[in-house]
Design a protein around this nucleic acid. Sequence first.
DNA 1: GCTTGACTTCGAGTGCGCTCGAAGCGTCAG
DNA 2: CTGACGCTTCGAGCGCACTCGAAGTCAAGC
Lengths: 131, 131
Amino acid sequence: MTVIAPPQGLTIAEASERTGLTTHTLRYYERDGLMLRGVGRTSSGHRVYTERDLTWVRMLTRLRATGMPIREVKAYAALCRQGDGNETERLALLQNHRARVLSQLAEVTEHLGAIDNKIGIYQSALERAET
Amino acid sequence: MTVIAPPQGLTIAEASERTGLTTHTLRYYERDGLMLRGVGRTSSGHRVYTERDLTWVRMLTRLRATGMPIREVKAYAALCRQGDGNETERLALLQNHRARVLSQLAEVTEHLGAIDNKIGIYQSALERAET
DNA sequence: GCTTGACTTCGAGTGCGCTCGAAGCGTCAG
DNA sequence: CTGACGCTTCGAGCGCACTCGAAGTCAAGC
């Protein structure tokens, strides 16, 4: 019967829809300690997602989408959870990640260039064949 | 006792060194049908890698490094193995892959931008803190 | 008051791509 | 002749990130 999300809160189904993650994955992330804090519950135990939760999930999604392993996201979440005073560590973690992503982008781009060459070879072979 | 590579051939250890793949991985690729043709053997059954084999392994590495799944590499290998006449399919496969890689690059780049913003925020927060 | 269905927890299962270990053999230095 | 080494095959195991299924609960509509 459609759980009514309490004022300002979203059900897990709504959170799923807005983040593009499945409800399974959202629960898994919470279980695994990737959320900033445990997600709130209604009196009946249903999850209530706030906008802050969604904002965090979106950040988390960016980290994951750029290849940060779960365990490192977890470490970052732990730092944020701890509160003020460790900004230097958080910054270092993100900069580290940034460097890795950049070098991976460069690598992929280089490989792509070689693949493009191959594509070019097939294309001109086919052109020659059809004349 | 150091297997003497036959004229123009390389042992799996040498192939490993030149490709950066472990001998385990090289054997696994062959087992799994990713090689163009089975790698040659000496009379005693040891693998003999030719330059052509290495060239193929390097292509294969590029495909893998850009995220092509093993099963698709296998499909591409099968097309090449089949010989002339399916260049259109090979081209389509590569172009398809190229498109996926490009959109993935774009996505990662976009996420990276957001992460960069976060980094900027931490940096200016830290600067403000130390004055 | 009963059915419905979206939620809950828990733990097991899946797919991918390696990665590793065990057991055996062939060749050569000593 | 012996021992060591580097290969061989085969099959099992692993790490990651989900993904799924089962069994139960709870609130609302009929």
